[in-house]
Simulated scan of single mutants.
Amino acid sequence: MKRNCLVLTVLVVGAVCLLQIGCQEQAEVALKPKPELTSPKPATSPAKTEAAPKVNEPSPEITFENVVHNFGGVGPETENICEFKFTNTGKGLLKITKVTKTCGCTPYTLEKTEYASGESGTLKVRYNSNKRPGSTTRRLYMYSNDKNNPKVGLTIKAKIVLKIDYEPKKLNLLLRDENAGCPEITIRSLDNQPFAIKGFKSTANSITIDYDSSVKAMEFVLQPKVNMERLKKSLDGRIEISLTHPEVDTITIPFKSLPEFKISPPSLIIFKAEPQKPVIKEVWILNNYEEDFEVESLSSKKNIIRVLSQEKVGSRYKFKLEIMPPAAEGKVRIFTDVFFVNIKGGEKLEIACRGFYSRKK
């Protein structure tokens, strides 16, 4: 009987223990948080570590035969070509990344931009000399992937010397003189190089010369011929004389003619103009050749300018003008007009007028 009671007690105690263990497991499960319903995050890869530079990686090295080119004496306004030769004396691939220009005077040509170890290349440079004589220096730069010498300066030197001289350097012409007072033009070689004249042209074809392109000489004296009617239509311009000299292709001589009349001031300008508020201006017209003349008529293109008085003083005319600024339209801040003076038996003079309105506060 006692044995049965003992067995029963053991069974009851065991059952109670099992019950407690089951409750603890349920409690642990209940304490665990439920996972949130969110989009899955991408797996983050471990941070990349930069590869250490290769100690023995072959590197390029650019080596020039010369970094300075001296042309010596060159003619003015001539085109001159020079070369800068280089070699990749390193072990790696040489890459040319850029070549700069100097004032637009040194364009370059390079066959390619990559050179293997031991391979050579040539940079060709075109140098255009100035007009004025004297020493000059130009500099450009070549950039590459040579770590020890990524920027190489290349220098071009030259001394501009006259190979051809001519006189006069400018022609001052007069409308009342015979042949416009045009002087002889003398052209001579300074380097003992004979040449011929192969061409001649002038603005409006107002000046011509006679020449034989088959004749070579060390010096030429030219006799210009002026067409007065054409010159009056184009008072200022230039003549160009083409030569066969090996270093001087063309010489240019400007010409300027003294006009028959002078207008003072040459134009009418009004600042801080107010609409419908008149502005008074004076204009003088005189004859540059001190000749008497008469004014036949006066007019205004847009009727903005009105003549208040006209007075002849010796060989000059004095005009008192009234300028009436028109009403400003929209955002327009300027007005213009042209005043015409017709000379009796002569030309028609034009005086430009421009006005600027005051800014509204």
Rank of each mutant, 00 (worst) to 15 (best):
residue 117 S to Y: 11
residue 88 N to L: 11
residue 161 V to R: 01
residue 114 E to D: 10
residue 139 R to H: 03
residue 94 L to I: 12
residue 173 L to V: 06
residue 186 T to C: 04
residue 184 E to C: 07
residue 184 E to V: 07
residue 200 F to N: 09
residue 198 K to P: 05
residue 132 R to P: 01
residue 145 N to Q: 03
residue 85 K to N: 13
residue 153 G to P: 12
residue 164 I to L: 01
residue 100 T to Q: 10
residue 108 Y to V: 15
residue 124 K to Y: 07
residue 87 T to P: 07
residue 109 T to P: 07
residue 155 T to Y: 00
residue 114 E to S: 15
residue 195 F to R: 04
residue 137 T to G: 00
residue 130 N to A: 11
residue 171 L to A: 10
residue 181 G to S: 10
residue 165 D to C: 05
residue 158 A to D: 01
residue 95 K to H: 14
residue 122 T to D: 01
residue 197 I to C: 04
residue 106 T to D: 12
residue 114 E to K: 10
residue 185 I to V: 14
residue 115 Y to N: 06
residue 150 P to W: 04
residue 153 G to S: 14
residue 187 I to R: 09
residue 123 L to A: 05
residue 198 K to C: 13
residue 102 T to Q: 07
residue 166 Y to N: 01
residue 105 C to G: 08
residue 197 I to F: 05
residue 137 T to E: 09
residue 112 K to V: 10
residue 112 K to R: 09
residue 198 K to T: 15
residue 167 E to S: 14
residue 86 F to S: 11
residue 192 N to S: 12
residue 110 L to W: 09
residue 154 L to I: 05
residue 134 G to H: 03
residue 120 S to W: 03
residue 194 P to Q: 02
residue 182 C to S: 12
residue 132 R to K: 13
residue 197 I to W: 00
residue 177 D to V: 08
residue 94 L to V: 11
residue 190 L to Q: 05
residue 178 E to I: 13
residue 191 D to C: 03
residue 93 L to Y: 07
residue 170 K to Q: 10
residue 181 G to P: 03
residue 168 P to L: 02
residue 174 L to E: 11
residue 166 Y to A: 06
residue 102 T to P: 10
residue 105 C to R: 12
residue 178 E to M: 07
residue 157 K to H: 03
residue 95 K to C: 10
residue 175 L to Y: 09
residue 123 L to M: 06
residue 125 V to H: 06
residue 136 T to F: 09
residue 129 S to P: 05
residue 83 E to N: 14
residue 167 E to P: 06
residue 112 K to C: 08
residue 161 V to C: 10
residue 99 V to E: 02
residue 137 T to S: 12
residue 201 K to G: 06
residue 148 N to T: 02
residue 116 A to N: 14
residue 160 I to G: 05
residue 88 N to M: 12
residue 151 K to A: 06
residue 95 K to V: 15
residue 161 V to S: 10
residue 147 K to A: 14
residue 119 E to I: 09
residue 85 K to W: 02
residue 188 R to L: 10
residue 176 R to T: 15
residue 189 S to H: 02
residue 158 A to W: 01
residue 171 L to S: 03
residue 127 Y to L: 01
residue 144 S to V: 13
residue 136 T to D: 13
residue 181 G to Y: 05
residue 135 S to M: 05
residue 120 S to A: 14
residue 109 T to E: 11
residue 180 A to G: 09
residue 107 P to W: 06
residue 184 E to L: 14
residue 163 K to P: 09
residue 93 L to F: 12
residue 91 K to E: 15
residue 201 K to V: 00
residue 187 I to T: 08
residue 171 L to F: 13
residue 115 Y to H: 07
residue 99 V to Q: 01
residue 163 K to M: 12
residue 170 K to R: 00
residue 164 I to R: 00
residue 176 R to D: 15
residue 85 K to C: 11
residue 121 G to Y: 05
residue 130 N to P: 09
residue 89 T to M: 13
residue 97 T to L: 13
residue 153 G to I: 02
residue 104 G to I: 08
residue 183 P to I: 06
residue 129 S to R: 00
residue 120 S to N: 01
residue 197 I to M: 04
residue 159 K to C: 08
residue 178 E to A: 09
residue 200 F to S: 06
residue 120 S to I: 03
residue 147 K to P: 15
residue 176 R to F: 04
residue 127 Y to M: 08
residue 100 T to S: 15
residue 102 T to S: 15
residue 118 G to E: 02
residue 128 N to Y: 14
residue 144 S to T: 12
residue 106 T to G: 04
residue 151 K to N: 13
residue 193 Q to D: 06
